[in-house]
């Protein structure tokens, strides 16, 4: 990544790497900066996957805790941001799997406490329907679609984060499009 360092993005990348190294060496201040720097991205990703603020905040907090304890294990083989991405997606999945068992409850109570965030944040019902439909896709298809479209990544970058082949990402996106054909 960014060996011919130039431009703001590369600079940011370099700064991040420096912070990571300092944090790995036990510099709490550096870690604090790193977290503050990453938090919004983590939260935004979590929101896109979860679709509501409270879940997203929970996931983001879990990711922060996780980062605190495993930052030393980051080995620099991939970009730090991809690594954080992977952790975030894992956290989302863990939470949703744990939540599934309580899903019936959650649904039953959803009517009592509707997530008031949603309507004003999204423009139009069709848009909302698309997001909901995508979030209900099987995990792999959902991850692929959200990474490629919502996060605007290349298939290759998405493949790296998902730990699968690029062609498989394309396949999942294709499948997702097929699944949602009626809706789109």
């Amino acid at each position: 990544m960014g060996l011919t360092a130039a431009g703001a993005e590369e600079a940011g990348e370099a700064l991040t790497r420096a912070l990571v190294v300092r944090a790995q060496n036990g510099d709490a201040e550096a870690f604090g900066e790193l977290l503050a720097d990453q938090y919004d991205r983590i939260y935004r990703t979590a929101w896109k996957w979860c679709g509501n603020r409270s879940d997203a905040e929970d996931v983001a907090q879990d990711v922060c805790v996780k980062l605190g304890s495993v930052i030393a294990q980051f080995d620099g083989r991939s970009a730090f941001s991809s690594w954080v991405f992977r952790i975030t997606l894992n956290m989302v999945r863990d939470m949703q799997r744990a939540g599934k068992r309580r899903g019936r409850h959650a649904d039953a109570y959803a009517e009592l406490a509707p997530d008031s965030q949603r309507p004003e944040q999204e423009d139009g019902l069709a848009h909302q329907a698309l997001w909901d439909a995508v979030r209900r896709l099987p995990e792999q298809q959902r991850d692929a679609v959200l990474l490629v479209y919502a996060e605007d990544m290349s298939h290759a970058a998405a493949a790296e984060i998902m730990g699968i082949k690029e062609a498989t990402v394309s396949f999942h996106v294709h499948q997702a499009r097929k699944t949602l054909r009626g809706l789109l």
Binding site: A23, A28, F31, G32, L35, A36, Y39, D40, Y43, R44, W47, K48, R53, A56, E57, A60, Q61, V63, C64, V65, K66, L67, G68, S69, I71, Q117, Q121, E122, D123
Partner: peptide
Amino acid sequence: QVPPAGDAARRRALAAGMAAF
């Protein structure tokens, strides 16, 4: 559009992360 995270949640998350670190 992603609604911004609550400040409190953000502070909490950062503090939790720091504590874990």
